[in-house]
């Protein structure tokens, strides 16, 4: 039964999103053009091949986060306003299950946008990103990190529909500081430390270290990047779970 409910929620979420495909295409175009344009400006009139692969990994993480969070939070706020959120709570399934379905839907759209938006610059600017198995674990952790943060934003959105401003601020900070403009290694230490507090930064750092510096997972662990990424992700999961438990009941009370 739980699996049926989860499938139903994911299927519904995908259909609702695909009912308005133009918005997704426009977002894709803007994302790709913005990245290439920024790199062109930062490269003082040229696309610098030494910066592009690392920044593309970072902005891929940002796109995933930004789009998954946008889909999840906007969808939730709209449903609360419309009344379908309350209907979806009258299920024999536990309340976190429909939320998990929403998160999976959001992650599908986030990943799809990130993948397609990254593919265009790779083809246009000939960016080559080497693939290494060692990057798999950091990539998975980056994904979980992003989804935990998305769930956390959604948990806040349950009781604070005006979360849009905070969401914009946080995702803008991620774009500015996670290495999407310049690799993290070029930042002053204090700024790099600040950037590592934000979601995606540690994941991007771990992936770029494995892909472009040839580091092994053991080296990442000993260097501290992997344990910090793991701790950061677990902290986000715990915070998101606690906030959801706290806010879910309150959100239903507010519907009255």
């Amino acid at each position: 039964m739980l699996l049926d409910v989860l499938r139903a929620e994911i299927g519904k979420g995908l259909r609702v999103q695909l009912a308005h495909p133009v918005g997704h295409v426009i977002t894709l175009l803007i994302s790709t053009m913005m990245y290439l344009g920024l790199q062109f400006v930062l490269g003082q009139g040229e696309l610098r091949q030494d910066l592009l692969p690392r920044t593309l990994v970072a902005i891929g993480g940002y796109w995933f986060l930004q789009y998954a969070a946008l889909v999840m939070v906007a969808d939730l706020i709209e449903e609360k306003r419309a009344g379908t959120f309350a209907q979806a709570q009258m299920t024999p399934a536990p309340p976190w299950l429909p939320m998990l379905g929403r998160l999976i839907t959001a992650s599908v759209f986030g990943l799809a946008v990130a993948a397609v938006a990254a593919l265009v610059p790779m083809l246009v600017a000939g960016i080559a990103i080497p693939l290494r198995w060692a990057a798999l674990l950091p990539a998975v952790l980056l994904g979980v990190n992003v989804l935990a943060f998305t769930f956390l934003l959604a948990a806040v959105a349950l009781v604070a529909p005006a979360i849009g401003a905070l969401q914009s601020l946080l995702t803008s900070l991620v774009l500015l500081l996670n290495g999407s403009f310049l690799p993290l290694a070029l930042y002053p230490d204090w700024l790099a430390a600040l950037a590592r507090i934000l979601p995606t930064t540690l994941g991007v750092e771990a992936i770029t270290q494995t892909l472009f510096e040839g580091r092994t997972l053991g080296e990442l662990w000993r260097g501290g990047t992997l344990p910090w990424l793991l701790a950061h992700t677990l902290a986000l999961i715990a915070a998101a779970g606690l906030l959801f438990v706290r806010n879910h009941r309150r959100s239903l009370e507010e519907l009255s």
Binding site: A8, K12, V16, A82, G83, T84, A86
Partner: peptide, 22 residues
């Protein structure tokens, strides 16, 4: 409240709510 999803068809709504009930 709307109770159902306006961006889905009548059929899709019923399929969703039926499966949501298990």
């Amino acid at each position: 409240s709307r109770n159902v999803y306006w961006s889905l068809s009548a059929w899709q709504n019923l399929m969703y709510f039926g499966r949501l009930k298990g």
